[in-house]
Amino acid sequence: MLTGAVSSVLALRSLYSASSLSLPASPHGMVHLLLFSGVQAPLQVRYSRPAKPKYDLPPLVHRALHTALDSKPASASYDAGADLLIIPRPGTLHKHSWDACSLADYDVTVKIQIVNKGTAASYAAEVSKALQTLAEHKGLELLDTVLVGLPKDEPASTWVEFWKTITSGEIKDVKNWGTLNLLEPILAELVTIKAPVANELNTTDCYTLPQDYTAFASSHRIQLWASGGGAGPDPLPAADLHNLLHEFKSVLGGLVPAKSTPALSSIIPVAADGSSFCGQAKPDVAVDWVVTYTLLSRTRNIVKDKGYIVSAESA
Score class of each variant (00 low, 15 high):
71 S>R: 14
72 K>D: 07
73 P>Q: 09
74 A>N: 03
74 A>H: 03
76 A>N: 03
77 S>E: 10
78 Y>A: 04
80 A>P: 05
81 G>W: 03
81 G>L: 09
83 D>M: 09
83 D>F: 03
86 I>G: 05
87 I>N: 10
87 I>F: 04
87 I>V: 14
88 P>V: 01
89 R>C: 05
89 R>K: 11
89 R>Q: 11
90 P>L: 08
90 P>Q: 11
91 G>Q: 08
91 G>K: 09
98 W>A: 02
99 D>V: 00
101 C>R: 04
102 S>H: 01
102 S>A: 01
103 L>V: 00
106 Y>W: 04
107 D>L: 07
108 V>Y: 04
109 T>P: 01
111 K>E: 09
113 Q>F: 01
114 I>C: 15
116 N>E: 14
116 N>G: 04
117 K>V: 03
117 K>H: 10
119 T>R: 15
119 T>Y: 11
120 A>H: 08
120 A>M: 03
120 A>W: 02
122 S>F: 03
123 Y>V: 03
124 A>L: 10
124 A>Y: 05
124 A>S: 15
125 A>P: 03
126 E>K: 15
127 V>F: 12
128 S>W: 12
130 A>Q: 12
130 A>H: 08
136 E>Q: 14
137 H>V: 04
138 K>D: 04
138 K>P: 02
140 L>W: 06
143 L>T: 02
144 D>Y: 03
145 T>V: 13
145 T>H: 14
146 V>I: 10
147 L>K: 12
152 K>T: 03
153 D>T: 04
154 E>Q: 15
155 P>T: 03
156 A>Y: 03
157 S>F: 02
158 T>G: 11
158 T>W: 07
158 T>M: 14
160 V>A: 12
163 W>L: 08
165 T>R: 15
167 T>F: 11
167 T>S: 14
167 T>D: 13
170 E>T: 08
171 I>G: 13
171 I>L: 15
171 I>V: 13
172 K>C: 04
173 D>W: 05
175 K>M: 08
176 N>M: 10
176 N>Y: 09
